[in-house]
Every structure is written in structure tokens, then in C-alpha cells.
Simulated scan of single mutants.
Amino acid sequence: MLQASADIETSGVLTERQKAVLDAALRLLVEEGDQLTMTAVARRASCSKETLYKWFGDRDGLLTATVQWQASKVRVVPVDRKGLDLASLTASLERFASDWLKVISSDTSIALNRVAVSHAGSGKDDLGAIVLENGRFALARRLKPVLDAGQQAGLLEFSDAEAAFRTFFGLVARDVQIRLLLGDRLEMTDAAIGGDAVRATQQFLALYGAKTGPRGL
């Protein structure tokens, strides 16, 4: 599921070379787990350790950027607050759900989250906090404006955006992530993921959809 000083859209800030380095770091995490070192990343990415320190700071900085890069693959489709309708709101939620399921079911995210869980509370590093802050918390910051827009347009009804987000997140994830982390080999095909995204969105709208219809109607 992915901290520098702020929540940023990593894909729009990084250069192509930096993205390639972070992809190399992700591959190493899959292959070697918590044995990730600056030296190993520099060797795999064919760059110097000095360059890594210049770009990302220390190892935690590199891990943060790596998690942010992975999380940036979950897209939040922008919505027009003035002209928002149910179709565009539904499409935005479905895209978010689909992207998130694809990311968490990837070998990269499974390996990253396993390492983060094993480090949580161990004092080894801050990877658990980094993944939590730049994964689940960052995604909430990105999707809540869409939920707020839906509420302002009279399409959604809720008193707490965080609670609404948690409900949607739960409907999308169900037990998928924990089963994957425990080694269950689920069939996460594009068709299955697309169907799950539609189902979760429809369930969320059934729970939070405005009963009186959009404002002005």
C-alpha cells in the first residue's frame, strides 16, 4: 500500500532517471526484503551512492521516495466541482479502486508491505511509519476532496469524510491485502479487479449516496 517532507505527486516531480532508480530499489525489495542498502541500490541502478544521497538523503529518504513512487500509481481522477454528476463521480471512485487493487496485489507492494510489517515497532527503521503515512494516509488526503465535492454537489451524504473514506477503503480492500500478505494466491486479473472496483463503488454509493438526488433537481 507509501514520506518525505510532504505528500507529493511523486510521478510529476521525479525525473525519468530518478524513477528508474526507484524502480531498481523496488525490485531489490522484492528480491532481498530488508537487506536493501544504498550500496545495493547504487549497484543495481548503475549510479553512485553520492547521487543517491544527493537525491534522497539517507536510507529512510530513499525508502520514502520509493513508497511514494509506488503509491503514485493509484490515480485519483479529478472532478469538476461545478459540473460534477453521478457518472463522473462514479468513474473517479472506480478508477481509484481499480488502481489501488492493482497496486496492492503486485509482487512489489506485497514485498514492501511484508518488510514494513516486520519492521513495525522493531526499532530497525521507520519503514512502517513511512508506508502508513505515504500509503493509506496519503491516499486519504487525495481522495477526500473527491468525496467532499460529491457532498457539495448533493450526490453524497456523510458527516465525517474520514469515516466515509474508511468505509470505501474497506469495501475495496475487503480481506484481499491480508490474504496476499499471508501468501494466498488470489486470481487478481484485470477483469476481476475491474469487477471488484465496480462492486465496491456501487456498495459505497448505496451507503452514502444522497437520497434526495443532486442539488437543484
Rank of each mutant, 00 (worst) to 15 (best):
Q177D: 12
M188T: 07
T201N: 05
Q152A: 15
R136C: 09
D148W: 09
P214R: 03
S159M: 11
K124D: 13
Y53H: 11
G121W: 05
A191F: 08
G213D: 08
D80T: 09
A24M: 04
F137R: 15
W55S: 04
Q177S: 14
S48Q: 03
M38D: 04
L171R: 05
E31W: 08
L155V: 10
A197H: 01
D34P: 03
M188Q: 10
F204E: 01
G61Q: 00
S118Q: 14
Q18N: 06
I8D: 07
E157G: 08
L139A: 10
D23H: 11
L62K: 02
D175Y: 09
E157I: 12
S48V: 01
E50V: 14
S105C: 12
L182N: 14
T64Q: 13
L180A: 04
L28C: 05
D148S: 15
A197F: 01
S92V: 07
E31L: 09
G61W: 00
A164M: 03
G154I: 04
F169K: 04
W55T: 00
I130N: 02
R215P: 10
G216Y: 06
A87C: 13
L205D: 05
Y53K: 08
L28V: 06
L22K: 02
K54Y: 12
R141S: 14
L89Q: 02
G83M: 09
L36I: 02
A25G: 02
A138L: 07
F165M: 02
Q152G: 15
A24Q: 02
F158A: 05
F169M: 10
V41S: 01
D58H: 06
G183I: 02
R17Q: 12
E16K: 10
T189V: 07
S11D: 15
G83P: 05
A65F: 04
T212Q: 09
L180K: 00
F158D: 04
T189N: 09
K211L: 14
T37W: 00
L93G: 01
S48N: 02
L93S: 01
S109Q: 11
T66H: 01
L112V: 15
S11I: 11
T167I: 14
L62S: 01
A200T: 08
V117T: 14
Q203H: 14
Q202A: 12
S92M: 06
G216V: 06
R141F: 08
K54L: 12
D160R: 07
R59F: 06
G123Q: 07
A191I: 12
A197V: 01
V117G: 11
L156S: 02
Q152C: 13
L155M: 06
R59W: 03
L63F: 04
V79I: 13
L205W: 01
Y208S: 07
E32A: 08
T51R: 04
D196I: 06
T90F: 04
K124F: 14
Q68K: 09
T201V: 06
Q202Y: 07
R142K: 15
C47Q: 02
A197G: 03
T10S: 13
T212I: 11
G194C: 05
V30H: 01
M38I: 09
V79K: 01
L186K: 10
R136M: 13
T10Y: 11
E133D: 15
R114Q: 13
S118E: 13
L22Q: 01
A153L: 05
K211Y: 12
Q203C: 11
H119A: 08
L86F: 08
K82N: 15
E157P: 06
K211T: 15
L127W: 07
F56P: 00
G33T: 03
G128K: 03
